[in-house]
């Protein structure tokens, strides 16, 4: 059943988008922490890591005490949080790299590092986003 619904969702994406070229398999090609941050995270958390405020807000990563726990950013990326979609289409290596990057930059210097193995161990909790073409 799970597999069936995945196939259905996939077919719907293809039908809606019509651009099911191989390159559009979800995911990101970037390798290092700064690359991943620049091309993925800063869309919301902003180039300076300070977040932003409009009708609602994006939390700052700079000086964010929640990052003191090394696995906190990992779980947020794997599962998403409220309106933030999951970024489980990042690989274990990518998640570890960018988690370490945000924990050690923007004025942060939280001790400890995240390894890809630790991310892998949490994979079971990952939430898969549905990629759909909006109207």
């Amino acid at each position: 059943m799970r597999k069936l619904s995945f196939l259905i969702a996939g077919a719907a994406v293809a039908a809606l988008s019509g651009t099911a070229f191989a390159q559009f398999a979800s995911g990101y090609s970037w390798k290092t922490g700064p690359e991943i941050y620049t091309h993925v995270c800063q869309g919301c958390h902003m180039p300076d890591g300070k977040g932003a405020t409009g009708a609602g807000m994006y939390p700052a990563l700079a000086g964010n005490r929640k990052l003191a726990s090394p696995l906190y950013p990992v779980l947020v990326m794997l599962k998403g949080q409220k309106a933030m979609p999951s970024f489980s289409d990042l690989t274990d290596d990518q998640i570890a790299a960018v988690a370490n990057y945000v924990r050690g930059n923007f004025g942060n210097s939280f001790p400890g590092t995240v390894t890809a193995e630790q991310v892998k161990a949490l994979r079971a909790q990952a939430v898969q986003q549905q990629m759909r073409a909006p109207g």
Binding site: S5, A9, G43, C44, A52, G54, A55, G56, Y58, A83, P85, Q128, Q129, Q130, R132, P134
Partner: peptide
């Protein structure tokens, strides 16, 4: 325009799953 940067919605649309 990138919809996650739009001040009044912070995203394009609600992304439901089954």
């Amino acid at each position: 325009v990138g919809w996650h940067r739009v001040p009044f919605t912070l995203g394009c649309a609600g992304s439901w799953t089954e």
